[in-house]
Design a protein around this nucleic acid. Sequence first.
DNA 1: GTTATCAGTTTCCTGAAGGAAACTGGTATC
DNA 2: GATACCAGTTTCCTTCAGGAAACTGATAAC
Lengths: 138, 138
Amino acid sequence: MIAEILTRETVDLESNPETIKEHACGDHHERLLAITDAMDILHGKWKIQLIGILLFKGKMRFGELLRNVRGIGAKMLSKELQNLEANKIITRRVLQTKPITVEYEITRYGKSLEPTITSIVDWGMNHRKKIMSSDRTN
Amino acid sequence: MIAEILTRETVDLESNPETIKEHACGDHHERLLAITDAMDILHGKWKIQLIGILLFKGKMRFGELLRNVRGIGAKMLSKELQNLEANKIITRRVLQTKPITVEYEITRYGKSLEPTITSIVDWGMNHRKKIMSSDRTN
DNA sequence: GTTATCAGTTTCCTGAAGGAAACTGGTATC
DNA sequence: GATACCAGTTTCCTTCAGGAAACTGATAAC
């Protein structure tokens, strides 16, 4: 992943006439790269919801997430949590209770996604209002 | 789509004891719904990039998008543009030039996504810095 | 000893996402 | 009349995201 990004950047900055042209006409190019970098972490049906609920509610157990995130199954939940943990967005802690429980919690780094998540939530709420009132003025 | 959302809301507000419980413990529930509503519009590999570039650069032609959005093919570009147009995020205008050209432009409603896109770009840039300096402090 | 809960894993399956390449059809240029 | 550019469309193909359901294995309650 790191290598991939470094490669991309090398290609971008050297010996590519098209890229130079694009840089000349405003570097949206760099911002598009930032979007794909962000979406590499956030893509898929569940990750943003999981980050959101952990931001909103603090730590949660596996079963709680299963019950609170509408429609998710155990397999996808497990998979997405592993992925988010690998990317340092959340932590996993096993508690030695009688039946063991596992707590998932957002990391400090994960919290840096709060403005992004909030912005998505805000737009989504506004969007729903627009749809329901059929008031999308072009 | 509208019906779908209305149905969901009906289910949410009535006769579902679990939902009532969740509402009692803080309505993250409503915010998760907002996330899925937003992602219904933004999901997939290309839509956020397309909205981004049209926000950054104003109107663009089909071929320009094809050349500027790294990796996209004509089929996907066409499909995603149609979808964004159907959702009133962008407009399509055919210009009667010698070989006809087609301009795509963000709508006023599409512009309401700017804070969201910007927030994703900002996080993505920060994320790349972190990765490259290997400085992700837990 | 049967059932339940915890937190998953495994298997099997399907549909959708997405890509490559060829094709369309109109106009202009050489 | 051959080639090229415009903006797509169509076909064919592969891969992967994601879901359902059964299973694991430990402990506790009845």
